[in-house]
Simulated scan of single mutants.
Amino acid sequence: MDPLVLIGRLLLATFLGGVLGVEREARNQAAGLRTHTLVALGACCFTLASVYTEVVQGGPGTVPGTQADVGRIASQVVVGIGFLGAGVIMRHGGSVKGLTTAANLWVTAAVGLTCGLGLYVAAGATVALALLSLVVLRPVARKLTPHPRRHSGRTDENGKDGAPANGEDSRPE
């Protein structure tokens, strides 16, 4: 494969992962722009390694499909991202925080995988739909929920949720 195509796939995964990370960064979440960018880039790189393992390992007389299981690396990315997502989920009293960020990291890994496979339209559509659910559906979820603090853990004096109060930062040092 042309090296420029490989670099293009990596750049697209990095950019699209960053797009998803910007929304989390704007909400001052622990996993923000850099985390999402790195997840998408890493997932894309693993996917490229998976897809092209046979090309690298294959030699003259090698039967296609006998050297590597392309799906194996992709499935391990999906499993591995669960550990990263679990790191952003925290329990505060009777509520759980970080589920949306964990889900967003999972989607970001999928975006990286699809970029690595060259499925650019699927990657772009996934980012658009993820942003739709993160931004557009947020007020809808607030209206449907009887508990005003459910979606962010913090509310201001008007009952609206947002960034942590009193100068607190959700990110550890």
Rank of each mutant, 00 (worst) to 15 (best):
M1H: 05
V5N: 10
L6P: 00
L11W: 03
A13N: 06
F15D: 02
L20T: 13
G21M: 12
R24W: 10
A26M: 15
R27V: 01
A30F: 02
L33Y: 15
R34V: 12
L38F: 09
L41A: 10
G42I: 03
C44W: 04
C44D: 07
T47F: 06
L48H: 00
S50F: 08
V51P: 00
Y52A: 00
T53W: 00
Q57D: 00
G59N: 07
P60F: 13
A68C: 05
A68P: 02
V70E: 06
A74G: 09
Q76W: 08
V77K: 05
V79R: 00
I81C: 13
I81Y: 13
F83R: 07
F83D: 06
L84N: 07
G87Y: 06
V88R: 01
G94S: 13
G94E: 10
V96K: 02
V96N: 05
V96R: 01
V96G: 06
L99F: 09
A102I: 05
L105R: 08
V107L: 13
A109Q: 04
V111N: 03
V111G: 04
V111K: 06
T114M: 12
T114K: 06
G116A: 08
G116P: 07
G118N: 11
G118D: 10
A122L: 15
A123I: 11
G124C: 14
A130S: 12
L132W: 09
L132Q: 00
S133Q: 02
L134V: 09
V135C: 12
V135D: 04
V136M: 03
V136G: 00
P139I: 10
V140T: 08
R142A: 13
L144S: 06
T145N: 13
P146N: 10
P148A: 08
R149G: 03
R149D: 10
R150E: 09
H151W: 15
R154K: 00
R154G: 00
T155A: 11
A165E: 14
G167V: 06
S170T: 12
R171S: 14
P172C: 03
P172Q: 11
